[in-house]
């Protein structure tokens, strides 16, 4: 298998190479306003995570993923599986496509092990880590900011924890998901990240939206 596909560790050593996240330019250009005291809407970027696209049949991928990562594919369309410590997730994108997000330094090892398990199966695995970023939105008004931005129903009663969809966000596309009660996650293409960031700050202004350097996500 490794001969038929070019599996390539394109991640550099972050100790010697300066890495810039997709929002680095936006933070510099548009600033990072502090969230209001009530923290009704807070944005943060979870940069440099590993993003892997898995294509293939659900059964074979589910089996390999359980072996390698200990979590399986979500059973239903538009849903999300998160591992026990909340660091690794896999999301349904289409009947033959899933998005795997793991800590950045795990990505190459993960792809290698998955390919080893999958052997000659008809699958594709693609590293898209640098092509997108994860923006986290939290606070009691988060869903109202989203209502201004996406056509999808984001009422917290309708968009329950564990749901994830690809949909429109203003005039671009995002993957929108809800890994737990407190947070929404937007996965945004790198070249659109600045637009999404400026939109969020603008749409969230009435709620005193601000930017936190750290995620509100607390590993369990």
């Amino acid at each position: 298998m490794s001969n038929s596909v070019h599996v390539y560790d394109a991640r550099a050593d972050h100790a010697t190479v300066t890495a810039e996240s997709p929002l680095a330019y936006s933070f510099q250009r548009s600033g990072m306003p502090a969230p209001g005291e009530e923290g009704r809407a807070v944005v943060s970027e979870r940069a440099f995570l590993g993003h892997l696209i898995l294509r293939g049949g659900a059964i074979v991928l589910d089996e390999a993923l359980r072996e390698v990562l200990g979590i399986g594919l979500p059973g239903r369309p538009n849903s999300l599986t998160v591992d026990a410590d909340g660091q690794r997730s896999v999301q349904w994108l289409s009947p033959d496509e899933w998005l795997l997000i793991v800590p950045g330094d795990e990505i190459f090892g993960l792809e290698t092990r998955l390919r080893a398990h999958l052997g000659g199966s008809h699958v594709a695995i693609v590293d898209v880590s640098a092509g997108q970023t994860l923006i986290e939105l939290s606070g009691e008004a988060a869903h109202e900011v989203l209502m201004k931005s996406t056509v999808y129903d984001v009422d917290p009663h309708a968009f329950t924890v564990g749901k994830g969809v690809t949909t429109l966000f203003a005039k671009t596309n995002v993957i929108l998901r809800r890994p737990d009660e407190a947070r929404w996650e937007l996965i945004v293409r790198r070249s659109f990240a600045d637009y999404v960031y400026r939109w969020l700050l603008d749409a969230g202004e009435e709620y005193g939206i601000g930017v936190a350097r750290e995620s509100r996500h607390e590993p369990q």
């Binding site: 293939g56 594709a124 880590s129 640098a130 092509g131 997108q132 790198r190 070249s191």
Partner: peptide
Amino acid sequence: YFNSVTDHWA
């Protein structure tokens, strides 16, 4: 399978 990697590679 086809996947966009436009934004991944500079």
